[in-house]
Design a protein around this nucleic acid. Structure first.
Lengths: 186, 186
DNA sequence: TCACACATGTAACACGTTACATGATTTG
DNA sequence: CAAATCATGTAACGTGTTACATGTGTGA
């Protein structure tokens, strides 16, 4: 039930339409929460009905009108109490690890290819996070940024994403090396 | 649609009843796939209907009878083709990171407590994985194990889990230090 | 005797995914 | 001129969560 809160948290970055939120989820929030546009539209409607966000229609020339949503005071309140509620233990679900678990009864070459693809993805994601980081830091170093910035949340979650991908890169590379060595011995 | 494959992969460890599978998911598979008992019962029934697993009733004295499931040849075949299909990109969903993202508008002390709880959980999980690892290695070192073992999948996924938790420990500790330093400066 | 482990399930609901539908404008 | 981007949505289906229901055996 926390897509709701991910949406509220994303709106802290500024008002947005469903479409814009979808973009935002693809970049700065994807790191720890993913959602399809459809989920976002559905969730925004519900949030509006319960008064946690307020939508207004912005008319646009040369483009379809859009509905832009803002956090309401009760939305901010909800976010606040959410941060204070106990978090339920996170449930992992990773397709690639299922394949790796089954590698001995499966198609080993295909699993190696999947690992290589994951490695490539992780490199790309890391590069994306590094760009975001440079944008945030804007020339300052980390210590300076942490002292001056009024919001540190987005920076800290971004660091989580970076480290996660760095570890991913190391791990996939190691596993590939192990599988390739074994494949060579047969 | 890959709970199905996680179940098939878990059955590679040996035949199991729904209840036993639930236990298995809590230990060796939880690392990369989680499921409630209800999901498993539902999935096993469907897998049986489609012939990927076969169930037989094992009568027990002093205990309720149980239905034990085995992979059928077509279940093995399905696992094999699954490993060869392209994996869809994994979707992350982490409550704690949502809280951290919103920390500046939320209850900072509560978020720090949640981080501390995660740190503690990560340490426990890591200790659990280390025990599993010792059981698998059974006195041998890694290189030896990898040469001798006929299944390396479970070991490699376990290593993934270990590293993930190690990184989690480092990251939560660092974030806590940063938040505490800031809290001190106010 | 009380809690926990064994063992299986139903029902209802919440959440997530996929496919489809529509249509204008900007960029290459 | 085609493709990508902006912009919003419906419908159907698949997956995951929560609460409840039931009953025996084992260990502290």
């Amino acid at each position: 039930m926390s897509l709701r809160h991910a949406v509220l948290a994303a709106l802290l970055e500024g008002d947005a339409s469903g479409y814009q939120l979808a973009k935002r989820f693809d970049v700065s929030v994807a790191n720890f929460w993913s959602a399809t546009p459809q989920q976002l539209y559905r969730e925004l409607e519900q949030l509006e009905r319960t008064g946690l966000v307020a939508g207004r229609v912005v008319e646009q020339r040369r483009r379809p009108n859009k509905r832009v949503f803002t956090l309401t005071p009760s939305g901010r309140e909800e976010l606040r109490t959410f941060t204070a509620r106990p978090a339920r233990p996170t449930a992992m679900r990773d397709d690639l690890l299922v394949k790796l678990q089954a590698v001995d009864a499966g198609d080993e070459r295909a699993v190696r290819q999947a690992l290589a693809a994951r490695l490539e993805q992780a490199r790309e994601k890391l590069a994306g996070y590094d760009r975001l980081r440079d944008d945030l830091l804007d020339g300052r170093d980390e210590a300076e940024y942490l002292r001056e910035a009024d919001r540190v949340g987005p920076y800290l979650t971004l660091m989580g994403g970076r480290r996660y991908e760095q570890e991913n890169i190391r791990w996939t590379a190691d596993v590939l090396a192990i599988l390739e060595r074994r494949a060579g011995n047969r």
